[in-house]
Design a protein around this nucleic acid. Structure first.
Lengths: 95, 95
DNA sequence: TCTATAGTTAGATCACTGTCTAATTAGATG
DNA sequence: CATCTAATTAGACAGTGATCTAACTATAGA
């Protein structure tokens, strides 16, 4: 039912949150990203796949290297869900 | 390392997000919460426990019934992490 | 104290997930 | 084309997690 469920699942993992944080300033290659972690490259590839499946990152090939970038549009959904909860005490909205 | 990791894990489940949403307007009893779901009471109890462990909800006994309430303080942490990512394009902050 | 009600705890099961090594694809280059 | 580099896919494995039934704890009331 919830389309952004994948996004919530994706950000549940600390490594994936760190990947997103690293991508905040701009695109990075898969290799450079992987270098920040003490994990095998296949494991990193898996995390990239989960993030991409949730539409949290973009993927672009350039020769041999693959560039990943942050896609904030889905994050906006997650953000707005959270702000609905954490926002001002009373809720004077729809219905 | 990340203290609010439990919170991210907790909100990864759709049922638990719905619980939080239901608690938004105010406290509810375990039974009334459970009535909104097609799950056994023990399963609901498990979800309450996960949310409580993440400090996302409060727990209060009153006679036979237990009242759960939303605790937004941890949500603020999650929120601020997310806003760092989804915020304005350039980040002109601390190192 | 017996019983009914509200809720949790215990224990089992099955699916999913994070991780690894080995093998594979894709592109660049001699 | 042979080979090197970058990255992914395949397959296995252990740990976690969502769920259930059965049993238990706690409170209220007759």
């Amino acid at each position: 039912m919830n389309a952004s469920n994948n996004a919530f699942k994706a950000i549940a993992d600390p490594a994936r949150r760190e990947i997103l944080r690293l991508l905040r300033p701009g695109e990075m290659t898969a290799g450079d990203l992987a270098a920040h972690f003490d994990m095998s490259k296949p494991t990193m590839s898996h995390h990239f796949a989960v993030l991409a499946d949730a539409d949290l990152i973009t993927r672009r090939r350039e020769g041999q290297t693959i560039w990943y970038g942050l896609n904030t549009t889905v994050l906006q959904d997650v953000l707005s869900w959270m702000m609905d909860l954490a926002g001002p005490e009373t809720k004077a909205r729809k219905k």
